[in-house]
Amino acid sequence: MKTFTYRTATDVAQGLEPGATFLAGGTNLVDLMKLGVATPDVLVDVNRLGLGEVGDLPGGGLRIGAGVRNSDLAADPRVRRDYPVLSEALLAGASGQLRNMATTAGNLLQRTRCRYFMDATMPCNKRRPGSGCPAREGDHRNLAILGASPSCVATHPSDMAVALAALDAVVRISGPAGERTVPVTELHRLPGDTPDRDTVLEHGELITAVDVPSLGFAARSAYRKVRDRASYAFAVGSVAAAAQITDGTVTDVRLAFGAVAHKPWRAFAAEEALRGRPATRESFRAAADAELAAAEPLRDNAFKVPLIRNLVASVLEGLA
């Protein structure tokens, strides 16, 4: 492990010197440092900034502090009542021990689990720009089918982020240049030819909170994660959904997919195709197909297309 210095952050807007990075729960960053994938010179610990509370927003909704632990957020009675999709997504992730450490912002900012990214002896355009992407021809069974580029087919591994994307959540950001907000759906980038940048955050910007707006029908919402074993595995495909169904018609809906792209994939096209349609399996599958029409699967991950289509129909049927 590369030698680094450690200090405690005292202010959300103080920024970061070059080569420094923020440390929250450390459940991903510390692993990457051990593997030589992340090599920061300075760790700036943000755990004592007082960002660990879940508060009510004035017009309804929740403000989730960046430092709220995944376990605490999943167990919050307001989350369980008003946004079951978020609680379910959190509980589908990692293990109890990891959820006790992992934070809201850290979960959003976790790096891909692409096996080439995780091995510092391999080429990887995300880890070492310009070195190439062996995944396209090599192991990519669990990599992206949507929004990938010739230089990167990585997926974002978070479950929580998929639920937040579906819920129109907004990330609150602080930095030396001031504060700004970014929708969760726009926080993560698509890889393009600069896959080394996961998000739109500038160096030194700190996520301070995630606002989840009031969404009445999110009380009927669900997260379904498919994985290669019953627990403690990253998704091979997941769907977050909330639906408002009146007299057999879908009047409003939120849909997002996980493990299919470089970002939590908000399925806007599927939502558009569903609004005003009858709440039937046929509509659900047609909506999924509207979104998946853009899919460009690789040799070994084409199964994700029917998998997501089936999941969308199944989850929405469960909500109908």
Binding site: R113, R115, Y116, M118, D119, M122, G138, D139, D228, R229, A230, S231, Y232, A233, F234
Partner: peptide, 12 residues
């Protein structure tokens, strides 16, 4: 390429 216990799955 899946040379750790996160990626080499055994039953949980």
């Amino acid at each position: 390429v899946n040379h750790d216990l996160a990626e080499y799955h055994i039953p949980s």
